[in-house]
Amino acid sequence: MDKKVLLSAVIDELESKVATLVSAMEQTVDAATNEETVPEHKYDTLALEASYLAHGQAMRLEQVKNDITALRTTVLRPFSGDNKVGLTALVQLEDDSERTAWYFVLPCAGGISIPGYGVTVVTPHSPLGKSLLGQSRDEEVSLSIAGKVCHYAIISIE
């Protein structure tokens, strides 16, 4: 898989999130400042709640924009089968049921699934990302998920 194409797809996903967040934030700001949301009594907190929501959306929007900037400056390292997992590695894992999945280790944007490629972004801060860093092909990593221990074998590193 071409990591440049994958990285570009992640940035595209984040840019579409920006458009959605801007739209949602505009609606929330409108709700917070609309004359119909003026409190009628001390327990009427609709405008206050809308302003808190707008603030949270603004913070999320700023984070997504920072992620886009960080990813645009990310240098993609080439990995061979002998390398250990590091930032920008594309890792194929196999679980106990012999199902395989691909993960792209990036500094941010964790959890994004790249449409059409079957690849999910993980960050070094996530439990899976932490367990993968520094591991080699054919090694196993284990994670405790909801009290259940899951084992994964590293099939390939690109």
Rank of each mutant, 00 (worst) to 15 (best):
Thr74Arg: 05
Ser113Ile: 07
Leu61Val: 05
Ala31Ile: 12
Lys148Asp: 12
Ala153Trp: 10
Thr28Lys: 09
Gln92Trp: 04
Leu46Gly: 02
Glu35Gly: 13
Gly81Cys: 11
Cys108Ser: 01
Ser16Lys: 15
Val5Thr: 03
Ser97Met: 15
Phe104Met: 11
Thr20Leu: 15
Thr73Leu: 12
Ile154Gly: 02
Leu7Ile: 03
Val91Leu: 12
Arg60Cys: 00
Ala54Val: 06
Val29Asn: 08
Thr69Lys: 04
Ile112Phe: 07
Ser142Cys: 07
Leu133Ser: 01
Lys148Cys: 01
Val18Lys: 04
Asp44Tyr: 14
His41Gly: 03
Arg99Ala: 14
Ile11Leu: 11
Leu14Val: 14
Ser80Met: 03
Ser16Asn: 13
Thr69Ser: 09
Ala31Asn: 10
Asn83Ser: 08
His151Tyr: 06
Cys108Asp: 02
Pro124Asp: 06
Thr45Gln: 14
Val149Ile: 13
Cys150Val: 09
Asp95Gln: 12
Ile114Pro: 05
Lys42Glu: 14
Ala109Pro: 02
Val122Ala: 11
Ala153Pro: 00
Pro107Met: 13
Leu61Trp: 02
Cys150Phe: 04
Pro78Gln: 10
Cys108Tyr: 04
Leu48Asp: 12
Ala109Lys: 05
Val105Ser: 12
Glu158Asp: 14
Ile112Asn: 03
Tyr152Pro: 10
Ser131Ile: 01
Gly134His: 05
Asp30Lys: 14
Ala50Gly: 09
Phe79Glu: 02
Asp44Phe: 12
Trp102Leu: 11
Thr88Tyr: 02
Ile157Leu: 11
Tyr117Cys: 01
Asp67Thr: 01
Val105Arg: 07
Thr69Asp: 03
Leu76Lys: 09
Gly56Val: 03
Ala47Asn: 13
Ala24His: 13
Leu87Ser: 05
Val119Ser: 01
Leu46Tyr: 09
Pro107Ile: 10
Glu98Pro: 06
Ile114Ala: 10
Ile155Tyr: 03
Met1Asn: 06
Glu40Asp: 13
Arg137Tyr: 00
Val10Asp: 08
Gly111Thr: 09
Phe79Ser: 08
Ala19Pro: 03
Glu36Cys: 08
Met59Tyr: 00
Leu71Ser: 00
Ser97Gly: 11
Ser136Phe: 00
Val91Glu: 06
Ser16Tyr: 12
Val122Ile: 15
Trp102Val: 07
Lys130Val: 08
Ser126Lys: 03
